[in-house]
Design a binder for these strands. Structure first.
Lengths: 224, 224
DNA sequence: TCAAAAGTGTTAGATTTACACCCATGA
DNA sequence: TCATGGGTGTAAATCTAACACTTTTGA
């Protein structure tokens, strides 16, 4: 039994915007497209939604295929559906953005897939409407980072306050005052100071902090 | 030539969440579903995306078909793609929300399509994941109304400050202080007082205001 | 010993909130 | 004349933004 047979079907794909934080910059994973049409152009990583999977699952699968990682933070950006957005066929694509800690990403796997971390301020022209997708993902993330604890998805589980601040600055695209920033962090009890010291970043050493998920869920209020 | 023939295609539909403001309440247009499966269930109005139209166009077309109106404010909510969200077939749906001035909607057309304005606080269980769609649309709109001049899409072109305030309250779901609200409105030069008086709402009469799009585009800053 | 990053408080200004009464009019 | 919604200002409290020096230590 087919209810909708008078209507036409289309291909639906997912594209993932993978953000990472490295060398003080917010970066995104892009590579050279490995299929026609557009083979060789800079592009987001993506895949087709198959008949028997949820779109969120398709995005998770695509993300896993590229990074080998599970349980990453991922959110939908939206659907992109101009008729000729894809030069080959009519394909509707649903964009997602994901956050990963660059250090968790196996370098071998990265090279294998031919993708690179590119500074969000230096993104070349990409295949199809992928530049637009990144722009929108960024807009959403910039807003999100002020009201939800997503920074921790981009950092190692132990981090210094300077790292956290640099990340915040890289995302919103402007510098903030160190003392004011730290004051606000101190008010969030779920960002815990450990008694570990990071010696890599400075001679003096900086206190390492950690995000306490449990405390956050109980206490729950976030505002940067 | 077909690039992607190894992948499967799916049906893609659009569903529109049409908000209106009437009798001091924020309402949404829903009706009884007129096709199988789910015939007779409460449902959003929707339609299929055809092979030769953008998804935004499909949404516009659907909206036009239902309301007869063009140039309505409309924004995408997102894509909904659980495998079994539709009880009949695998259909991915892209939700949009639109804002209309209830008075602009031809009552005859409304009855013809069998849709009704339902208070957002009294929405019954809807077909498929339509309740979820409305919830998300509301969340987006609640946020939007604080930073963008969208209220005017839900009001007649001339409105009183009390109307504007009641609308704002209906959207965010809480009451606000009259004097503080008016103070903020006064700061926005693109909300212009006319010398017309509305006598319907009170004996004394209330000044009618209008939104000046041109002034807004030049002056442009909005914050409620 | 000095360069480099870590760490720390105070104050002025801006914004937000709370709050109550008079006005004009039609019924 | 009175009930109804329209219209108006001030003060306290909170939040935000600006700002500079001391500490530690490895090279």
């Amino acid at each position: 039994m087919t209810y909708y047979k008078e209507y036409s079907k289309v291909w639906v794909s997912v594209d993932v915007i993978i953000f990472g934080f490295d060398e003080g910059k917010l970066k995104v994973l892009i590579g050279r497209r490995q299929m026609d049409p557009g083979r060789g152009e800079w592009s987001l990583y993506g895949g087709f939604v198959s008949a028997d999977e949820n779109i969120d699952e398709a995005a998770q699968r695509t993300l896993k295929k590229l990074t080998g990682l599970n349980n990453l933070y991922m959110r939908q950006v939206g659907a992109f559906g101009s008729i000729d957005r894809d030069p080959g066929e009519r394909v509707i694509s649903i964009a997602y953005y994901a956050l990963i800690n660059v250090k968790d990403y196996d370098e071998k796997l990265r090279v294998e897939h031919g993708v690179e971390w590119i500074d969000i301020n230096k993104i070349p022209t990409l295949y199809s409407d992928h530049n637009l997708m990144i722009e929108q993902a960024l807009r959403i993330m910039r807003q999100k980072i002020k009201t939800a604890p997503i920074s921790f998805r981009l950092l190692p589980s132990l981090f210094t306050l300077t790292q956290l601040q640099r990340l915040y600055e890289a995302v919103i695209g402007e510098e903030v005052d160190k003392r004011n920033f730290r004051k606000r962090i101190k008010e969030m009890d779920f960002i815990e100071k450990t008694n570990l010291i990071d010696k890599k970043s400075s001679k003096r050493g900086a206190a390492l902090y950690r995000f306490n998920t449990k405390a956050y869920n109980e206490d729950s209020n976030f505002k940067l």
